[in-house]
Design a binder for these strands. Structure first.
Length: 569
RNA sequence: GCAUCUAUAGCUCAGUAGGAUAGAGCGCUCCCCUCCUAAGGGAGAGGUCAUUGGUUCGAUUCCAAUUAGGUGCACCA
């Protein structure tokens, strides 16, 4: 597609003796479309050219040659040069491109041949899969899809916490209270209850922790029966997660968890030793990071066991060898930033500077209720992610029954809307901020919510259906969709690629969510201002095609976030 | 104490690598069901961009300090 900024920068470059790439960076979008579609602030050149900004603007305007097929006019406004885009040209460019690429509209291949390894979700097996895991799963999943959209080869890794003392706890609990729980039915539920009960009781009886440690030691030593139980626990947990992952539309390329690295850690420890990085301290083996103003990174505990830093380093080395990654992203909570800073620094000290620079921790805030309290911290009610998703679906079903009881496929619509609402709520603000989980807000059909985006999409759909319209770019007279409201849409569609690129650059899915809100609002504006269905066939066809275009981009964008669009609701 | 994140309308948040009059949504006030879903539309009120300095032609944006809140700081992940 045409690059208008480049065109403008080119034209300006010919009048002043400056680099066009630099000029292109200066170009901005005016706050208000009366002031044009693109603006060049001449203040930036004042110093270099040693002239007053309005004078520069005047000189450029006099000398500049613009291609009238692309730019309608140039105007001076204070120190700004305002450029007005040829509306028909842009409508044609955008809609033709959309016709060519359809669902792929906006995708690019800037990432071709590059691997992006994304570590996300990563629940601890045998522990509850709760609301706290939502964010990592959803943010990571969105980044996975966004990078793919940009041509990267995304590798999604669910780094399962499938090794550790929690197994000792569950196994001990199983032995102690076997008869109190019904394991034949709803097994996973019983296991979770045992884990929760054990964690509670061990606070008062420290000897239970020792029992758990010994049970885990048995597992580490390769006890046959313990290993059997571990396998069984891992299996039923995974099967349980799959249900949630299916609801959330989350997919992974690898489920290699901590257990997978169990026998590979010795090598890394040895490597650290050889490179002279390990130091004895208080009975533990550490990498001293004092000169980098960080606490030491523990590699081997005083009990002689490995720790998560050891496992992260091991898996990192493995990922370097396997994927030779361009980026390695860790979608993990805010509270672990020091840990990752340490691990990446140790990796650098080991001689992998190149890869250490490519590692990035993608932190995010907590999920809190509307009073600002962490969900599940005090109120002990259900915080299992699966339950929350099902609750959302149930709530949407109730709304549908109330408002639109004759709707076909109610169950499917309820699923798409309910889950979509939760996903969108999670991704609609900057990830670093705490996410407020408030049923009334996130399920609202008005406002900046998932259901609103879906509702607008359904509107585009229903208009097309009503008109019995088969989209065909050949019938479109582009001069019929250049009203202000339509042109706002065209400009938004035009920027879709840039939005995706920016989302990846900042590793921030909310860039996409905000865009979807803007696009929905722009369409809603247009829809309310003009009758899409009119007697004039040329106008109607053009408007219908634009409607069709909006629908496609809304759907593509929503899918990048992991949402599904219902056909009606 | 040190590190780090956050602070914009009553509430929840956007704010495009410093730029033109700081934008949405919710809530609130008023108006509108003879148009395509009232799960709607229109209009309006609502701001010292936490404070103070600095850099600059220009700061909500960058820097420093201060204040308030969150999180993390040795064998849990």
């Amino acid at each position: 597609m045409i690059n208008i900024k480049e065109e403008i920068a080119n034209s300006i470059a010919k009048t002043v003796n400056l680099d066009e790439k630099e000029l292109a960076n200066y170009i901005e979008i005016p706050p208000n479309s009366d002031l044009g579609d693109y603006a060049f602030p001449c203040f930036k050149l004042a110093k270099e050219l040693k002239k007053a900004p309005p004078m520069i603007a005047n000189e450029i305007k006099e000398k500049i040659v613009i291609d009238e097929n692309i730019l309608e006019k140039v105007e001076i406004q204070g120190g700004y040069l305002n450029f007005y885009v040829n509306k028909q040209m842009l409508a044609k460019e955008v809609l033709t491109e959309l016709d060519n690429k359809k669902e792929k509209f906006g995708s690019v291949n800037i990432g071709e041949g590059k691997n992006v390894v994304i570590d996300y979700s990563s629940p601890n097996i045998a522990k509850p899969f709760h609301i706290g895991h939502l964010r990592s799963t959803v943010i990571g999943g969105a980044l996975y899809k966004i990078y793919k959209f940009l041509g990267y080869n995304s590798v999604g890794i669910n780094y399962l916490g499938d090794w550790g003392i929690q197994f000792g706890k569950v196994m001990t609990g199983l032995e102690l209270w076997k008869d109190e729980y019904d394991l034949s039915n709803n097994t996973i539920d019983a296991v979770l209850k045992i884990y929760v009960r054990f964690s509670k009781e061990e606070k008062e009886k420290p000897e239970m922790t020792d029992m758990a440690r010994q049970a885990f030691k048995k597992l580490e030593d390769g006890d046959k029966q313990a290993l059997e139980t571990w396998k069984w626990l891992r299996e039923i947990s995974l099967a349980n997660y799959e249900k949630t992952y299916k609801l959330l539309n989350a997919k992974f390329d690898s489920y290699n968890g901590e257990a997978y690295y169990n026998d590979k850690m010795d090598k890394v420890v040895e490597e650290l030793e050889q490179k002279g990085l390990l130091k004895d301290s208080q009975g533990a083996k550490i990498v001293d990071l004092e000169e980098f103003d960080m606490p030491p990174c523990i590699i081997i505990t005083s009990a002689g066991t490995t720790i998560y830093a050891t496992r992260d380093l091991t898996s990192l080395e493995d990922r370097i060898n396997k994927y030779d990654f361009e980026k390695a992203l860790y979608v993990v909570g805010n509270e672990q930033q020091l840990h990752f800073k340490q691990v990446f620094k140790v990796l650098e000290l080991m001689g992998y500077e190149k890869y250490a620079k490519r590692c990035e921790h993608i932190p995010f805030g907590l999920v809190v209720d509307k009073d600002g309290e962490k969900i599940g911290s005090r109120k002990g009610n259900s915080v299992l992610l699966e339950d929350i998703l099902n609750e959302a679906i149930e709530k949407v079903k109730n709304i549908i029954n109330e408002k639109n009881p004759d709707l076909p496929d109610k169950d499917e619509v309820a699923r798409k809307v309910g889950v979509g609402a939760i996903i969108f709520n999670d991704l609609s603000n900057s990830r670093i901020k705490d996410e407020i989980f408030d049923w009334d807000m996130l399920l609202n059909f008005q406002g900046e919510t998932g259901p609103y985006i879906q509702y607008i999409y359904v509107r585009t759909n229903s208009v097309l259906t009503k008109a019995g319209y088969t989209p065909s770019i050949k019938d479109v007279d582009f001069s019929k969709v250049t009203e202000k409201e339509a042109f706002d849409i065209i400009k938004l569609l035009y920027s879709f690629s840039d939005v995706a690129i920016q989302a990846a650059a900042k590793n921030e899915p909310s860039v996409i969510s905000r865009y979807l809100i803007d696009l929905s609002q722009a369409f809603s504006n247009y829809y309310n201002q003009y009758h899409i269905l009119t007697d004039d066939k040329a106008i109607q066809d053009a408007r219908l095609y634009l409607t069709y275009a909006v629908g496609i981009v809304l759907k593509t964008g929503a899918e990048l976030l992991g949402m599904e669009m219902p056909d009606r609701m």
